[in-house]
């Protein structure tokens, strides 16, 4: 540091007065830089990491999707949009898309409604409140694979718990895997078991930020608890609901482990692919058999687009419906 200051003077030797101003100037400049640029520096790690692990793979996948690229045989030829053209006519892909959307709707709708009601209950004065609030998060911190194995047992066709219970009340056993909708239900059940508590906690956090005097004045006006819930709570936590809907959409469309474990580890998703999801089909084509990376990349991009579109649709739907007659 001092050596650079020493080196400067010769050129400036003519201007005699103080030695202090030139000394201050660099640090002053540093200070300005600090104010202007530091914030960027502080948030840079996220963007650098996102660039490396998010953006780059995204773009590279788009690039690879334009190739006929098979790892096993080693072919790599530019194919333009051929992969996408094949994809449009791939019945198994659309079957997987149908399953994914079906399981998504079957899991997310009840999940968010139950989470909302659960959060409303937990928002009241009650005993062992913290314990209960923490308790609903427990399913979320258990390993997905473990959840998958246990539920595959519970929903087993012949020796499963549920079919046994149904048998005790004289109901015929359900073909939990052969029947498409039964398998969707079971997978959705697994997802809900894991994620309802998580969403409830997020709603609870939002509810606690609602000023209490709103409820007090509503009570004075004679509004019932139910009315208060729909007219005050739900509209005021709307941003949070939007957030959970979008997060659930992103997660729901990428569902993989639950149906995989449910099918005893086979990516096929049932004899007739009745519960094979998009992520499973992408895995099947990309990482087994011929390792068709080009085709897999094209499917991944299409899935990415579908997630964006569905997230936007949900965003608009929820914003409309939750607004109600407020404002």
């Amino acid at each position: 540091m001092s050596s650079t200051v020493d080196a400067v003077p010769p050129s400036r030797a003519a201007s005699p007065p103080p030695t202090t101003p030139p000394r201050q100037r660099p640090s002053y400049r540093l200070g300005r830089w600090d104010i202007t640029y530091s914030p960027y520096l502080y948030i840079a790690p996220f963007f650098v990491l996102f660039g490396i692990f998010g953006l780059f793979p995204l773009l590279y996948t788009a690039y690879v999707s334009l190739f006929d690229y098979e790892l096993l045989s080693g072919t790599k030829e530019f194919a333009g949009l051929e992969n996408y053209r094949v994809l449009m006519a791939d019945a198994q892909f659309w079957n997987a898309a149908y399953n994914t959307v079906g399981i998504f709707i079957l899991s997310t709708v009840p999940q968010l409604i139950v989470a909302l009601l659960l959060a409303n209950l937990l928002n009241r004065q009650m005993r062992a409140r913290t314990l209960l609030r923490m308790g609903i998060l427990i399913p979320n911190i258990t390993s997905v694979a473990a959840v998958g194995i246990i539920f595959a047992l519970i929903f087993a066709d012949r020796y499963g718990l549920i079919n046994w219970l149904l048998g005790t009340v004289g109901v015929d056993p359900v073909a939990w895997r052969d029947n498409r909708y039964a398998s969707w239900f079971a997978v959705a059940f697994m997802v809900d078991w894991r994620w309802t508590g998580y969403n409830a906690l997020i709603y609870l956090g939002a509810m606690q930020a609602i000023p209490k005097d709103l409820y007090e004045s509503a009570s004075l006006d004679g509004a019932s608890a139910w009315r208060q819930f729909w007219a005050i709570t739900v509209p005021l936590i709307r941003p949070t609901i939007l957030f959970t809907v979008i997060i659930s959409t992103i997660g729901g469309f990428q569902i993989f482990t639950e149906p995989l474990m449910y099918g005893f580890g086979l990516v096929r998703g049932g004899a007739d692919h009745q519960f094979q999801t998009l992520a499973m089909y992408i895995y099947e084509r990309t990482f087994t058999g011929n390792a068709e990376y080009g085709y897999g990349s094209a499917m991944s991009w299409l899935l990415f687009m579908m997630i964006i579109i569905f997230a936007l649709i949900n965003f608009v739907l929820i914003r409309r419906s939750v607004k109600g007659d407020e404002k």
């Binding site: 595959a152 047992l153 087993a156 066709d157 012949r158 020796y159 499963g160 005893f264 580890g265």
Partner: peptide, 15 residues
């Protein structure tokens, strides 16, 4: 009629 490697197959051994 037990599907190999499924939970039912596993249980079929015990039963």
């Amino acid at each position: 009629k037990a599907q190999r490697w499924s939970a039912d197959w596993d249980a079929a051994f015990k039963n």
